Computed example of a mutant assay.
Amino acid sequence: MTRSGSNSVMAEDAAAGAEVVFTSLPNGGLVTQVLDSLLDAHPQPRLYIDVSTVSVAEARELASTVRGAGSRFLDAPVSGGIAGAAAGTLAFMVGGVNEDVEEARPLLEVMGKSVTHCGDTGNGQAVKACNNMILAVHQIVLAEAMVLDERLCLEPQAFFDVVSNATGNSWALSVNAPVPGLVEGSPANHDFAPGFAAALMLKDLKLAMQAAEETATGTVLGRIAAEQYADFVDEGHGGQDFSAIINEVRAKR
């Protein structure tokens, strides 16, 4: 099993002799570049598992290329960020042939607590786009609520104790609380060093908006979230954790 880097030559060396190859790269163009290199260097049949976040169309094009070269392909994007990777609690959403998914499952379960077969190739990416659109909206509305309560003179701990045990709870609060001192391991405790960078959230939101346009789906809140993260990144905050959007909310009156 190999997790490939962005350098194609290094990837070729790392993948030599592997029956299963994992790729995890920032965008579909890089995945295509690395897989093309690997298919040329190692033409023997093998299973390729891409855990990057790319568009549905890109995932399906990659699968077609890999299968045309005599190998097999799964798209298996993840949710959970750096903290989930370190703890082995990632959630994998997998698209591809059932037999290939079952072959890959023991490997994925080493890294994650949840492995869900979502159907055909590209469906993993479809779920990932929807999931991260939800997460972005949650993080923004949580930031708005926490700033509102700050201005109403409510202590953040009291807010957390109530909402984390009430109907307003979410991963954005219970794991990624954007105020220091509430959740151990939250990026807010470390000046918003990224568990999941705002620039990556924006990339995923753009993929979700692309899918919404292609399917003529109304995504009012998703589009608002995409616009807010675009502004946040344009202002130079792309390297911060996406939960740092709370500072943008605080800056607005």
Rank of each mutant, 00 (worst) to 15 (best):
G124V: 10
R67M: 10
T121F: 00
M111R: 12
G70W: 08
A83M: 11
I82P: 00
T121N: 06
A86W: 02
L107G: 09
G84A: 11
F73Y: 15
T89A: 07
T116F: 15
F92H: 10
D75Y: 13
G124K: 01
P77V: 10
T121E: 14
G95S: 09
C118A: 13
A86E: 12
M111E: 03
V78S: 01
T116S: 08
V127C: 09
D100T: 14
L108D: 04
V97G: 01
A83R: 09
G96R: 02
F92E: 01
G88L: 06
V97W: 00
G80F: 07
R105N: 11
D120N: 07
G80N: 07
R67Q: 13
V127Q: 01
H117Q: 10
V78K: 06
V110D: 06
F92R: 03
V110W: 13
A87I: 07
V97P: 00
A69V: 03
A76G: 14
E103H: 08
D120L: 04
E103W: 02
P77G: 14
P77C: 12
A85D: 04
A76N: 05
V115I: 15
F92Q: 04
A69H: 10
R105H: 07
A85S: 13
M93H: 04
G80P: 03
A104V: 14
G68K: 03
L74C: 13
G81F: 08
T89L: 05
G84Q: 11
V110Q: 12
E102H: 10
S79T: 15
A85W: 01
S71H: 07
A104P: 14
F73R: 03
I82W: 03
G96N: 05
G68V: 13
G84E: 10
G68D: 06
M111I: 13
A91Y: 00
G84L: 09
V101D: 00
G95D: 02
A91T: 15
F92Y: 15
G112R: 06
G112H: 10
L74A: 08
G68P: 09
E99K: 12
A83W: 01
P106H: 07
C118Y: 00
E102W: 02
G81D: 07
G70S: 11
V127L: 09
E102Y: 03
A104Y: 04
A86G: 00
M111N: 10
S114T: 15
P77F: 15
A126N: 04
D120I: 01
A85R: 09
R105G: 06
A83L: 10
K113I: 04
H117Y: 09
A69L: 03
D75I: 08
Q125N: 13
L107I: 14
A69M: 05
A87N: 13
T116D: 03
